[in-house]
Write a protein that binds this DNA or RNA. Structure first.
Lengths: 347, 347
DNA sequence: ATGAAAGCGCTAACAG
DNA sequence: CTGTTAGCGCTTTCAT
């Protein structure tokens, strides 16, 4: 069936400030003052009420673009994510949105596909849209200079992923501590043949996880199995591929730390396909505690990640910076969720 | 450590069209014409090249807000989702973004928390931001009138969720056919004691799935078990709760159709907790084929949903409407993914 | 307490 | 082909 009229692209008979002024019999600037809670002071109570009434009756809606043009602020904050499709980013975005709501700002989300070239394009577009600030969840190490140059125009806040040696503020988790937690857990269970199923070290969170993990093993005098190929994307498919590689080597691990839950899921699938049991034969740990992690069977041992909180903090930092306040980095502590995919090595 | 200077909220020394004109020694409007590919025709090749050069050198970036104010178009499309955190919506959003990119438009995503009151607030805010159109993924039946009234101002396109008896265009899936597919599958496996684990019928997709499902059973002369409480949210927790309810009744089903994958996951957890095996004792079917569905154990039998494609179609429809063209509803056929949670009833 | 006028950055008529 | 002028809807001096 055919819908929508094919003639006009919808009329937009919107009511302007001017219309309200006319209807109320006052000057536009008076209406502007009356409706702006901040400057409504020098307007008589009676007039204000009358104007508000008229505005409501006419269905007046402020034109935020025009306001932005005048005031130099759009009320929009650009949020740059690697992949909208990744479950993992969703709570962060939501946290940002919730925080911004307080100042009636709104996030404008754009996706980089975790590609640095696209990052530039996307940020440029966002800047053209006059976003008041940027929250970047998709930072890769190579993007540092670019992002810092952008920060000279508008505040830039990093969420989740850190950037080595940058001055940009960040809200995230202590991934190094997370890596340590996992290593300690596996050591405590008696594992000695331990490997990492690693993602790209260009992503700060993963590099930090790996560091904390390796350090801890080293300190315990354990020689970690060398890292195989790095997973190119953080997907189950890549987890499966790299796990197979891990299994095809001379020394096979009894425990594997996958750099995130999606990789872990893929790794477990690879093991299952070969008839290797988890956790009886091999223990697996993931990272992020994604929504379904506890519902897998066996439920996945992983490190909780407080995405909503981190998003909210990032949003708060943006607002602080916009007010011209200094901000402190916020680094949340990780929490190990011991569930069913790890177990004590039988003696 | 303290970051960001506490004094100024970042200077924005942006380069305007005027600046470029001055530097190039021409009039601003000439610059405007030179840079706009559409109207760059009536400008001399040499001047155009020179202007482009200057613009690039100064790092000029068009001010999309100002352009929008003048032209009456913002290039932003409001996307209204029920829950940013739901995996399910992510590919749709991505599809919309990909489609809009062609006309260098951008989605502005807002979340309703699946609450009709919030929908109004959110849409209002979006309209204030002068979005050129709206794509609504969060429609509930009660929102029909409101959305249709909004459609008098800007094009409104429904994605995924249908709205009974509306004139608004939609891109989505044939959920009734999906329900039928599932019923036929269970019947073919010999099941006769069949129940639905239902979500709210206020959500069009779920109501349609239920209809197709029930119809098919009825036509086959099978008396469906009555629906228990409806799940209030589409979460594993609710799936667990309602499944327990289903099990506490006199007649217990041998097969259950959960209205989406998340509910199915929760239902399976409930069964497992009671020592009931899936699929040996009870078969379970979900809906949506969410990313991890194939990696669960057993892998979930479900109906595939082409979110990316639907998003892309919705984006295309928006652009068509904006061009003043009529659009046809697009309804994609469902595909049953038979995996490991259903099996033939033993005789 | 309110009105008048200017202007944010840009585009689109209209001249020339 | 390019310059002039006006104005999108709003806020913000400056008067009154």
């Amino acid at each position: 069936m055919s819908k929508g009229n094919g003639t006009s692209p919808s009329k937009r008979p919107s009511v302007t400030l001017h219309d309200v002024a006319e209807a109320a019999g006052v000057h536009p600037s008076t209406v502007s003052r009356a409706l702006d809670p901040a400057s409504s002071r020098p307007v008589r109570e009676a007039t204000r009420v009358m104007i508000e009434e008229t505005a409501r009756k006419l269905g007046y809606r402020p034109h935020l673009l025009a306001r932005g043009l005048k005031g130099g602020r759009s009320g929009a904050v650009g949020v740059v994510v690697a992949d909208i499709g990744n479950v993992f980013f969703a709570p962060i975005i939501r946290g940002i949105a919730l925080s911004l709501e307080d100042s009636s700002m709104m996030p404008t989300v754009a996706e980089t596909q975790d590609d640095s070239a696209r990052l530039k394009v996307v940020v440029d577009h966002l800047m053209s849209r006059q976003v008041d600030a940027l929250v970047v969840l998709a930072a890769r190490h190579g993007d540092r200079e670019f992002l810092e140059s952008v920060a000279e125009e508008v505040p830039v806040v990093l969420a989740d992923r850190p950037l080595k040696g940058t001055t940009l503020p960040r809200a995230g988790q202590d991934n190094r501590a997370g890596g340590r937690l996992i290593a300690e857990h596996l050591l405590a269970l008696g594992h000695r043949d331990i490997a990492q199923l690693a993602g790209s070290f260009d992503v700060g969170t993963l590099a930090e996880r790996a560091e904390g993990f390796s350090e801890t093993l080293r300190d315990a005098g354990i020689e970690e199995l060398p890292i195989a190929t790095h997973a190119e994307t953080l997907t189950p498919a890549e987890g499966t591929r790299v796990m197979h590689e891990l299994l095809s080597r001379a020394r096979v691990p009894t425990a594997v730390f996958a750099h995130n839950d999606l990789l872990a899921v893929g790794a477990i699938a690879a093991l299952r396909a070969r008839g290797i049991r988890v956790p009886e034969d091999i223990s697996i740990v993931g990272y992020d505690d994604m929504p379904l992690a506890g519902y897998l069977s066996p439920p996945l041992t992983t490190v909780a990640f407080q995405g909503l909180e981190i998003g909210r903090l990032a949003g708060d930092m943006v607002q602080a910076q916009l007010r011209g306040e200094a901000t402190e980095d916020v680094v949340l502590p990780p929490r190990l969720m011991v569930r069913g995919t790890t177990r004590r090595l039988p003696v």
